[in-house]
Design a binder for these strands. Structure first.
Lengths: 145, 145
DNA sequence: CCCCTAATTGAACATGGTTTTCATTTAGTA
DNA sequence: TACTAAATGAAAACCATGTTCAATTAGGGG
């Protein structure tokens, strides 16, 4: 699963004719192999294991690109707004562990009834939604005792 | 409705034994009487109409307090993360206009089926969720033409 | 396979929003 | 009214992110 993630990310970059540099590869690898909460500084730190000369600037640029092409989603946590997780194509959301920050994707939200009702009550045209579930992953549940 | 909002906000501050200063009153009034997008700088600017000597520092401190006691919710917009809207008690969400930033509350999201299914698939204990709808308010719809 | 060029990069600096510090002021109680 | 802890504002510190620019490099064309 992880290897596929990494390859898919590389494919996506290529598909948009971005060059596959060592720095970008390192960032992709970090994204593909980490479960935890990932802000830019942390990604940079981890990426240096594979590419020691990478700078924070490049990490930000790479994250921007990946978010642009939809390969990455920004997660919005209560305590801060910029963690990142790789995103599968299609309409997905994330379930985030409040203990360790791990993010898991899920799909199949059906909000049409809610959206219709809110739209007719308010007169808004609803264009999209943004949903995240917060919880505790199995490991953090057992750690708790 | 607006007056009630204001009084309720003041009550909530008192209930947590925070002092009701002129500065805080000014911030509360701004929150209670504005529909638009409200970041800290904007709130400060507006608050100076009622309390010219208020500083940005105090605005931030007041917003933190209000968020802590649940009187205020932070809204997370695609382009930035810190706008604020007063929050009614109970379980509500916000519908946000992508044109002007106006935020409207709604309630009645029913996600139990989704939550159950995701919980059993992932092993997470789901503790809460976070939902925002994005759309276009009536005014911004007509402005568009 | 190597050259060429546009894309990419890193360091340093700029920026902008938020927080901290600290001396002064003030709300609310006795 | 006096007192005291809480609250305030200005300035400085801080931190994440963005920009600049000269140097480097990926990857296609020869």
């Amino acid at each position: 699963m992880r290897v596929i993630d990494l390859e898919r990310l590389e494919q996506q970059l290529k598909a948009h004719s971005y060059k596959l540099t060592r720095q970008r590869r390192a960032v992709l690898r970090v994204l593909a192999t980490t479960d935890g909460r990932l802000d830019a500084a942390r990604i940079c730190e981890d990426a240096r294991a594979e590419c020691p000369e990478i700078g924070l600037t490049t990490v930000y640029r790479t994250l921007d690109i990946l978010a642009d092409i939809g390969a990455l989603r920004r997660l919005h946590l209560p305590d801060g707004c910029h963690s990142y997780a790789p995103a599968s194509p299609g309409h997905r959301h994330h379930l985030i562990c409040v203990g360790c920050g791990r993010a898991v994707e899920f799909e199949g939200c059906d909000l049409t009834a809610l959206v219709d009702s809110v739209a007719s009550k308010t007169g808004f045209e609803v264009e999209g939604h943004w949903l995240q579930l917060m919880g505790r992953c199995p490991e953090c549940q057992s750690k708790r005792k």
